[in-house]
Design a protein around this nucleic acid. Structure first.
Lengths: 152, 152
DNA sequence: AATGAAAAGATCACCTT
DNA sequence: AAGGTGATCTTTTCATT
């Protein structure tokens, strides 16, 4: 079976709320519970669903200070890149890291408690990574939009 | 009751996989199923959990081209800001939009099919929004790290 | 793709510390 | 107040049609 419009709608709903029962989904999609069940299993098996997760409130756990850091490496040799990327993966303040085109090599999304914690992070963790040439940080003033749901 | 270490560990597991049963979690946390159940309900009630979602594979749904767009507004009056933010919320290619400090006003994360689709998005959607002064786009070459799990 | 039985899991009342 | 036990209700899962 192919990936059709019903599958798209199903993923749309699962991206909004994965705790809905198959019964609730079956009502929304005008299908039987079993049909929903089998479509979900198929989508999971074929790799459409990466995983199911709880999204937690960053304010509640004191990680409401968000910064984006641009990073330039001193050199772009294979070993520098590999070692930088490995180090960055170890930093749990860094939720996202992208190798990007443009003036800088990397863009990082960093979550910490406050500006003081960010300073700590920069001085004690980020800039102790080897091969970093320069950094440029931008602070999030307001989160205008934030969703994990991809529109199809 | 306060937010203790067991709660932290519970959120850690739920951020990794929210489809685990309370029985699985109870083994990991050395608690009874009911204790896990009640802690989860408490965390949900107190707003620690925003929601439960399915994270889907962007390659599978043909949205593997990721770009970050910096945007500067022509003016920063209240009405310009409000109308820009409203418009951006309507664009479903834009998964994230942050008002940030620095040279540009906003940082957007955009998901589309490919470069051609990105061009379409820029010309037909983004730049038709009023009050945009200038834009600067960066393309993701490689996703080095990407998680939704906040470390506590 | 639907029905309904069986298994698994969530939820709750009640009890113990 | 927290956690445990066991009963019950709900949901998932799957064989059969």
């Amino acid at each position: 079976m192919i990936f059709d419009d019903i599958d798209k709608r199903l993923l749309f709903y699962l991206q909004k709320d994965s705790k809905q029962t198959n019964k609730e989904l079956s009502n929304k999609l005008n299908l039987s519970v079993t049909a929903v069940y089998e479509r979900i299993k198929k989508l999971e098996k074929r790799g459409y669903v990466d995983k199911y997760v709880a999204l937690i409130n960053k304010e509640k756990v004191d990680k409401a200070f968000v910064a984006f850091c641009h990073i330039k490496l001193v050199k772009h040799s294979q070993d520098y890149v590999v070692s930088f990327e490995k180090e960055v993966n170890r930093l749990n303040e860094v939720l996202e890291c992208y190798h990007i085109s443009g003036d800088y090599d990397y863009l990082l999304k960093v979550l910490v408690k406050n500006m003081e914690a960010f300073r700590e992070f920069m001085v004690k963790k980020l800039t102790t990574i080897n091969h970093i040439g320069s950094t440029h940080s931008m602070f999030v003033i307001n989160e205008v939009k934030h969703t994990t749901a991809i529109n199809m």
